[in-house]
Structures are given as structure tokens and as C-alpha cells.
């Protein structure tokens, strides 16, 4: 399983890439593999303000539907519309296929998340 350096990770297998006050969020290689062929993704609306821990998206495979939780609070400023037509991009390139970008409300929340090493450690135990 690929775990990319320089990203933040959650125990629910989401990743966060921070650029200034903007955070891109997606699901990890482990998550996409566990789900199998992704057939659909439900995206939130731009402008929605959500709290850390809120489910902001649902990723569906043929046999499963999985909520994606927001690792950090923020206002949705971009959604990856390409995924609406080609959800398989998440399978093909999980770290390249961000789902949403949020404007961070509280950067200190990032401190609660794992870095690549910690996530690797977590994965080897949990997953």
C-alpha cells in the first residue's frame, strides 16, 4: 500500500494535503483498495461549512457504501467534479484524486492528525 509523505492522515483512512489555508482531502490507497471498484461518489455543495468528523461524501462500490469524514473543520471551496463522471480515478490514483478542498477554520486541528510515518504504523496494526 502506498503511503505518501508530506500528507496528514486519519484513522478513517482519509488524507489531507495543506496549501496555505486550503486543505485538499481524499481517501488513501488502503481505503480505495478495501472498497474495491468505486462506481459513484456523492459530493457536497461548494459553500457548505462542516465540522471535523462530519461525513461530507459517500463513496460507493458495487457492494459497499462508505462515508468519508472531514478530518478538519472548514468551508468547502472546491469539489472535484471530474470524479462525478470518473469515480474510478480514485482507484487509479488515490492521492492524486482529491475529493474536496476546504478553507481551514482552525489550523490547529491539523495537529490531531497523523503524519505518514504514524499512519504507516497505524495501518500495520489496524488494517
Amino acid at each position: 500500500m502506498e503511503i505518501k509523505k508530506g500528507l496528514y492522515y486519519t484513522e478513517e483512512n482519509e488524507w489531507v494535503r495543506v496549501e496555505g489555508n486550503k486543505a485538499y482531502i481524499g481517501i488513501t490507497d488502503y481505503a480505495q483498495d478495501a472498497l474495491g471498484d468505486i462506481v459513484y461518489i456523492e459530493l457536497p455543495d461548494v459553500g457548505d461549512t462542516l465540522k471535523a468528523g462530519d461525513a461530507f461524501s459517500v463513496v460507493e462500490s458495487v457492494k459497499a457504501a462508505s462515508d468519508v469524514f472531514l478530518p478538519v473543520s472548514g468551508t468547502v471551496i472546491e469539489i472535484n467534479e471530474e470524479l462525478e463522471d470518473s469515480p474510478e480515478l480514485i482507484n487509479e490514483d488515490p492521492y492524486g484524486s482529491w475529493i474536496i478542498a476546504v478553507d481551514l477554520l482552525d489550523v490547529t486541528e491539523l495537529d490531531e492528525l497523523m503524519d505518514a510515518e504514524a499512519y504507516e504504523e497505524f495501518s500495520s496494526q489496524e488494517n
Binding site: D37, V39, Y40, E60, V62, E88
Partner: peptide, 8 residues
């Protein structure tokens, strides 16, 4: 049958 493309 190909259930994946049916759902995609």
C-alpha cells in the same frame, strides 16, 4: 456479469 460498469 459486469456489475461495476452497470453501476458506474
Amino acid at each position: 456479469v459486469d456489475e461495476v460498469s452497470a453501476a458506474r
